[in-house]
Simulated scan of single mutants.
Amino acid sequence: MAYYRQVGEVPPKRHIQFRDLEGRLYYEELMGEEGFSSDSALLYHRGVPSAIVASELWELPDQGTAPNHPLKPRHLRLHALQTGDCAVTGRRLVLGNADVRIAYAVTGTSASALYRNGTGDECVFVESGSGTVQTVFGSVDYRTGDYVVVPRATTHRWVPAEPSRLYAIESNSHIAPPKRYLSRYGQLLEHAPYSERDLYGPTSPLLVEGEDVEVLVKHRAGGRVVGTRMTYASHPFDVVGWDGCLYPYTFNVEDFMPITGKIHQPPPVHQVFEGHRFVVCNFLPRKVDYHPLSVPVPYYHSNVDSDEVMFYVGGDYEARKGSGIGLGSISLHPGGYAHGPQPSAIEASLGAERFDESAVMVDTFAPLDLGEAALEAEDPAYAWSWASDRAGRGAESQ
Rank of each mutant, 00 (worst) to 15 (best):
N117G: 05
V88W: 00
L57I: 13
V213H: 01
W386S: 06
T203P: 04
A352K: 15
E376L: 09
D255S: 15
K321S: 04
C86N: 00
G223C: 10
M361A: 15
G108E: 02
S37V: 11
S234R: 15
M31C: 08
D85C: 00
A319Y: 06
V253G: 07
E162N: 03
E211H: 14
S302A: 14
Y232N: 02
R286G: 01
F256V: 05
Y300L: 09
P236Y: 03
T203Y: 12
G131M: 01
P267A: 15
N117Q: 09
S397D: 11
E378L: 08
E214S: 11
G210K: 05
L42E: 04
L30H: 08
D289Y: 10
V10G: 09
R19C: 14
E308A: 11
S302G: 12
C245A: 14
C123N: 03
P202Q: 01
S173G: 12
T144Q: 14
S164P: 05
P177L: 04
G138Y: 04
R220D: 14
I325H: 05
L114V: 02
W384H: 14
E33K: 15
E378A: 09
I259R: 11
G32K: 09
F237Q: 03
K262T: 12
A111P: 03
G210A: 02
V124G: 01
V295M: 09
S323R: 10
Y194E: 09
A395L: 15
D255E: 14
G222A: 08
Y299E: 12
G84L: 01
L81K: 04
L93G: 02
F283L: 10
V53W: 13
D85F: 02
F137G: 02
N303Y: 13
D99W: 06
S40V: 10
G227Q: 00
F355P: 09
G145F: 14
T132P: 00
L375T: 07
A153N: 15
K72L: 15
Q134S: 15
F237A: 08
G336C: 04
G394I: 07
H174E: 07
E347F: 11
A377E: 04
F283Q: 03
R92V: 12
N68A: 08
W158N: 00
S183D: 10
A176K: 12
D20E: 11
V53N: 13
L93I: 00
Y337V: 12
E59V: 01
D305F: 15
W386G: 02
G322T: 06
V217H: 06
G227S: 11
R91C: 01
H235P: 01
L284Y: 07
S358M: 06
Y115T: 01
L206H: 10
G326H: 08
Q265A: 15
V226D: 03
L60F: 04
K262Q: 12
G108S: 02
V124W: 03
H79I: 11
H270F: 13
S171W: 05
S397R: 15
S130H: 14
S171D: 04
G47V: 07
Q265P: 03
V10Q: 09
E162G: 00
A111D: 02
